[in-house]
């Protein structure tokens, strides 16, 4: 149906297997992420959403399979290539993972210092720009992470993830722990950044509102692989018990996710 859409694949995962000791997390997992889309990853607790994210960014080593980012196979690159390719993505960790001993602006400057030799006033200017882009007031720049609220900390972490102008943004549960207003503002921010900067966003989330509002496609993790990777309207029709439970529960209805079965008053067929 959407095969003729532009198939510019940014992240290509093939036959991925990850395991911790005897515990197999993913087995034979395939995943494509297209340029410029927001892909939402959902799945029950313990299905390895965050592990998948960490494996793609190289914090975890897979035991089998290949991961290609921008056409380069991860793990086969030289150190220099690896360092360069890391510039092309920004990662927002679940709790922000800001450096607690640095101010917000200094946090944003860390990657700049690491990769470039820029004059301090330009670096201040760049970091303040990123801080305003992430929707923080300018007076937050000289505050320490411990002085910020949860939502502001997430935004500060987003500013840091954006500081090298990445093309791919990995977000690990960006709206978890935010109040609904903060969460929807964050959703809007992510969409705005995607549109203006042409980002590709890999979004791990549990938030049904975020899924229905922001994601172009949704990938469901389960049974150690991707069950389906399609627009939300197709995902909710998938005949799989977990998917049906997830997208037809009361919270999904509250988020305005509708499927034909429910609209027609039919019970979902459970396998």
């Amino acid at each position: 149906m959407n095969n003729d859409r532009n198939k510019n694949i940014v992240i290509k995962v093939r036959g991925l297997k990850t395991e911790f000791g005897d515990h197999v997390i993913h087995n034979g997992l395939d995943l494509d992420v297209y340029r410029g889309e927001i892909l939402g990853i959902v799945g029950g607790s313990g299905t390895g959403k965050s592990v998948l994210l960490k494996t793609i960014v190289g914090l975890n080593k897979q035991s089998e399979g290949s991961i290609e980012v921008n056409g380069r196979i991860q793990g086969t690159m030289t150190d220099e290539e690896d360092r360069k390719s890391r510039r092309e993505w920004g990662v927002l960790f679940q709790d922000g993972a800001l450096f607690t001993s640095l101010t917000v602006a200094q946090n944003v400057q860390v990657p700049l210092r690491e990769h470039f030799d820029l004059p301090p006033d330009l670096m201040d200017c760049l970091s303040l720009n990123k801080i305003t882009m992430a929707g923080l007031p300018l007076d937050a720049a000289c505050k320490f992470p411990s002085d910020l609220s949860g939502g502001m900390r997430k935004r500060a972490a987003l500013a840091r993830a954006l500081s090298l102008d990445p093309h791919i943004l990995f977000l690990d549960e960006p709206t978890a722990g935010l109040d609904p207003i903060g969460a929807s503002a964050f959703d809007a921010l992510v969409m705005e950044l995607r549109d203006s900067l042409g980002l590709t966003v890999f979004l791990v989330t549990h938030d049904l509102d975020t899924l229905s509002r922001t994601c172009d496609r949704v990938a469901v993790l389960g049974e150690q692989k991707i069950l389906i990777n399609a627009p939300l309207s197709e995902v909710v029709e998938l005949d799989h018990p977990w998917v049906q439970d997830y997208f037809k529960g009361p919270r999904a209805r509250a988020a305005g996710i509708k499927s034909k079965n429910v609209e027609n008053g039919m019970q979902p067929v459970l396998a």
Partner: peptide, 10 residues
């Protein structure tokens, strides 16, 4: 616009 200068450290 260029952001107005603001302190980046205490």
């Amino acid at each position: 616009a260029c952001p107005p200068p603001a302190p980046t450290q205490p």
